[in-house]
Design a protein around this nucleic acid. Structure first.
Lengths: 159, 159
DNA sequence: GGTGAAAGCGAGGACCA
DNA sequence: TGGTCCTCGCTTTCACC
């Protein structure tokens, strides 16, 4: 399915990544197309998996989350069951907004939101330390999000 | 401005975080309101900064990025000028999709997309090592994104 | 791949409760 | 606040190039 993307497809992806609420008419205008082919292309990009969803970006601070923490976790053992239990438990905890299984000294890298440092401390003690299979935890706090929109490059140079 | 959010506002935020392309009519339906008040609430949530934007979520893999790397960077010195030069340069590099200034042993944590490991190696040598003020770099690769949608909790329990 | 038209629906505003 | 109504423009899907 992943047919190759032409200039117009890439322009559509860039435009929608910047503003997911653009109407088809506005999009068509930006890429110099009429609405029908523009609409078909967007549908195709969705069906072929280039676009996986549309999300409103919320402000953590406005919602009461003053602290973003990055937590590195080392596991006791590295069995498949252990990893599965750990990952399953993670999915239930909304404060953990991202998690990657990673290479290197630690096994998982988590991104966590908390109201403040005190509430993070409690969360670390009561929740993180009790996750199945955890051996060691290293926490680091974000002083400032220098770049956080996670804009994926779509221009051809990068491929 | 940040007036407090009631149940309906939170439901709207949750719905739009899940699908930013919902129409006002669909949203109104989900929260049992008619379109006008629903529309007014969404506009308010945007104006008051709870919603900072709407983004299409793209698939890095489909776009040719097979590797997600987390790079920790230690700086030479910690002057304000140094940090500014470093941050300014970061903003110009699209492969760096996120960056936080952090506490702890390292100063910055970057998230980087690359085609493959080889191309990341080149990027690390040619770009990262040459960023202004860099003293030490530690790279770690994501084997698997266990959770990556960065859904910010909006239910009242968390506040 | 592209155009153009038609039917139906949503957006956004004025106004009332 | 929430609801009604109204108008304009957009979305979506045709048939066709």
């Amino acid at each position: 399915m992943p047919t190759t993307l032409d200039r117009i497809d890439r322009a559509l992806l860039a435009a929608l990544q910047d503003n997911a609420r653009l109407t088809i008419a506005e999009l068509a205008d930006q890429v110099s197309l009429t609405t029908s082919p523009c609409w078909r292309r967007v549908k195709q990009l969705e069906e072929q998996g280039y676009i996986t969803g549309y999300q409103a970006t919320l402000s953590p601070k406005s919602l009461g989350f003053g602290v973003t923490a990055f937590v590195s976790i080392m596991m006791d053992s590295h069995t498949k069951d252990m990893a599965r239990a750990f990952e399953k438990r993670l999915m239930e905890i909304p404060e953990i907004v991202a998690c990657h299984h990673i290479s290197g000294r630690y096994d998982f890298l988590l991104e966590i939101l908390a109201r403040d440092l005190e509430s993070f401390g409690e969360f670390a003690r009561e929740v993180l330390q009790r996750l199945p299979g955890v051996k060691e935890i290293y926490s680091s706090f974000s002083y400032k999000a220098v770049k956080e929109r996670r804009i994926i490059p779509v221009s051809e140079n990068h491929i």
